[in-house]
Nucleic acid binder design. Structure first.
Lengths: 209, 209
DNA sequence: TCAGTCCACTAACTTTTGTTCTATTGTTGA
DNA sequence: TCAACAATAGAACAAAAGTTAGTGGACTGA
């Protein structure tokens, strides 16, 4: 069974180039191609392709917006971004919208074919720089405040519960201590983190930007 | 200039197999291999390899802990996880600790060589499933609650300030309205989001798991 | 072994948050 | 034009959060 796909790309040369090259492989079947997100919006839910190759910069609606709008109508379809944009904003926005792969247009055609297979196989092929961007997000989020490490075991427990939105009373019950003790622990946390209230403590401890 | 590397892996067959195979390529130079994280901990900062291939499950200290401890001593060294673990916890923990690539041991040797080059080139090579895990994190974090959309403009403003940990009084001053109005708006937010307090509202609105 | 420190704990008190009820004004869509 | 909604606000009250002061046990270095 070959992999069905649709191409959304406004430039005729790129669109036809992709279609012709991918069509050479018996593993794929190009169902149709579109120049605009608006057309794709109507046709993709009808054709239900395995994969959509999506450009970002289209006349009118962007490719990202297009994915956002149809993602939940066609849950089985996988979206592969294929674009020149490699700035963080576009990358993260596209992934959040529902794309599962992200290739730059500098990618070779042979590599593209491999990536499409990988995508269909449950992977998330990405150009080298793009993958690194994702990894960086994790590393940056790593909380590394020296203050946090001075928290005692009990204080850390408190912080976790605090972050869930539990009341002092609920924390006290769960830990079998008096509500006053809870208050004292939390007060100590605030001092160590140099904050004034619950929300600031949570923001600081759980690595917000 | 060839890429220098170090292998940390407790199983002799795997360790020697990697060393011999990678050694065949003139692009790489295997500086040394270690069986434990404890040995690696001392030698890596001294040898300053371009790349470390790191197993997770080692006798004694884990490979992840090892990376965490030396990452800031050797900022130029890139860490490639090479392991059988593909559960979320290990993957994210490793990336947070400072790994930039994550390959499963099922990866073919030729693919491994390619991935090492990609890593050295600023990419973040990952096995297909691993990459998909990362992408999923982004997609899950995407707030998609129908309730949020029913919030009015003013309510959304409140929510943003609330999330910063501002007091009602501070919000009132900033918006030039009475503190009673602030209370009223926030009360309405809580009703719409079906929550009981500030922390729950923030958690719900800002897409915590 | 003794002084100093840290941790877990508690009570009494103040401030902030959250609820409830009422009411006015301006906007909008059926 | 009428109903619904958004934004505003006062006021009284209840509940939760946060502050301050202090106790006792365990450990630690001199």
């Amino acid at each position: 069974m070959s992999i069905s796909l649709i191409i959304v790309e406004d430039l005729k040369e790129v669109r036809d180039g992709l279609k012709n090259f991918i069509g050479l492989s018996s593993d794929f079947k190009v169902l149709d191609t579109f120049q605009t997100a608006e057309e794709a919006l109507i046709e993709i839910p009808r054709l239900k392709p395995d994969i959509v190759i999506m450009d970002i910069n289209l006349p009118g609606m962007s490719g990202i917006e297009c994915i956002r709008l149809i993602k939940n109508k066609t849950p089985a379809t996988q979206f592969m971004m294929f674009t020149v944009y490699e700035n963080d904003e576009k990358v993260f926005e596209a992934l959040k919208a529902g794309a599962s792969g992200y290739l730059l247009k500098s990618t070779g055609l042979v590599q593209l074919i491999e990536s499409l297979k990988e995508l269909h196989n449950g992977g998330s092929p990405m150009s080298a720089n793009i993958a690194r961007k994702l990894v960086n997000v994790f590393q940056k989020n790593e909380t590394n405040l020296p203050e946090i490490e001075t928290l005692t075991f009990r204080e850390n427990e408190m912080l976790q519960m605090l972050a869930k939105g539990l009341l002092y009373k609920e924390i006290a019950d769960k830990m079998n201590i008096s509500i006053n003790t809870v208050k004292q622990h939390i007060h100590n946390i605030y001092e160590k983190l140099h904050v004034q209230n619950r929300t600031e403590a949570i923001n600081k401890a759980l690595g917000k930007k």
